[in-house]
Nucleic acid binder design. Structure first.
Lengths: 210, 210
DNA sequence: ACCTGAACACCGTTCAAGT
DNA sequence: ACCTGAACACCGTTCAAGT
């Protein structure tokens, strides 16, 4: 029970921990009020409605992430490092992904990496629209991958549907392929392979190589 | 009011149209019952609870999509064509994406393309784990992109946050870059560029070129 | 300026009771 | 086998009333 006057900060704090522990669906105004020891309606006075609360939480989490610092020598390595760091940062905050998911705020997840990517794209010799395209390609790639990855993890069931391919005409001739597709995904490796591929192509354009 | 005995089919049909028109959030058991002219509880007898209903709808929509047929001459072109077709098919069914979103079923969206991709990867000379990796890389790429794209479209607000970069140190030196980043995304082009890049790299591996 | 309880209009789900 | 209404335990939000 909080006797001292309720604070916007206090509400945010409690809401954040609630989301962190049980996901955004569990963040109900009434539960939150109970946790805070106040009436439900007090929250409305300080924060507004549930949507605004979620928005504020998303913003807060993004702030906490801070900037992303590239590592490595070559432009290629540095851009890839930004992608990896962004994925790591997002995966460390599954609640963020879930909240962004629930509302339509994916582009918020782009922000932490954007400055760094712009800088690196420029350093790699990309200019103007081409640089913008490269920045966005990496952002879409990374965020998209993380969305798929998380969504996959959320799914409780095994993925037996992929087993269908075991006896598909093509896979039947290639047992190793069938086995690999039936098995679990090595997300880490898949992420790296895809990102490397993308960056390679983007930089090939910069080098004048078509 | 439906006097004839309620059918599982009838429930699914009505539920589908409800989702199509107003999104999965509007699919409430009570609204659905009202639409059908029955008591809410009848639905439970035929279908089960809301989760099972959504699962069934997802499955149904996937079935409707049917198989994806590659076009083009070269392996590269054919794989890219599968990616494009998959994206188009998904974008034509925004309700599917929303439903899959709400539940954790992303991998269901992988299925329509998988057979075709396996075939094409094989035709391109990829075998075993390498082929599996290529198939999955394309799947993740396409589905991830569509997820980001859709989520972006759902967001009502403009994206002023990207304007931040206008006066970022790097972008400041490159007005064309700043302008491009502040403007809207050409999703179509971004998708193609990324997909082409990925496929090029995946096939380079097949050609023995490291 | 801040907090409150009552009330409204919704939910999904269960269950005993009907035919 | 199929359908029903009542009931339970939840929601978010508004609003008039308090201090």
């Amino acid at each position: 029970m909080a006797r001292n006057p309720l604070t916007r900060e206090e509400v945010m704090e409690t809401a954040a921990s609630l989301v962190q522990q049980q996901g955004p669906r569990a963040l109900t105004m009434r539960k939150l009020a109970a946790e805070l020891g106040t009436a439900v309606t007090s929250i409305y006075w300080h924060i507004g409605n549930r949507e605004q609360l979620l928005d504020a939480l998303v913003e807060r989490t993004i702030q906490e992430m801070g900037a992303i610092r590239p590592t490595g020598r070559t432009p290629h390595a540095r851009i890839v490092s930004v992608g990896r760091a962004l994925r790591t940062a997002l995966r460390e905050r599954p609640q963020l992904i879930a909240m962004v998911h629930e509302r339509g705020l994916t582009e918020r997840m782009f922000l932490p990496a954007q400055q760094a990517l712009v800088h690196e794209a420029h350093a790699a010799g990309l200019r103007g629209e081409l640089a913008a395209e490269a920045v966005r390609a990496v952002q879409f790639q990374v965020v998209g991958f993380v969305l798929v990855e998380r969504n996959r993890e959320r799914s409780p069931a095994q993925h037996p549907s992929e087993g269908e391919l075991w006896d598909s005409p093509t896979a039947g001739h290639d047992p190793a392929l069938a086995r690999a597709l039936a098995g679990p995904v090595d997300a880490e490796q898949l992420f790296l392979v895809s990102l490397e591929a993308l960056v390679t192509s983007l930089l090939a354009v910069a080098a004048g190589d078509t």
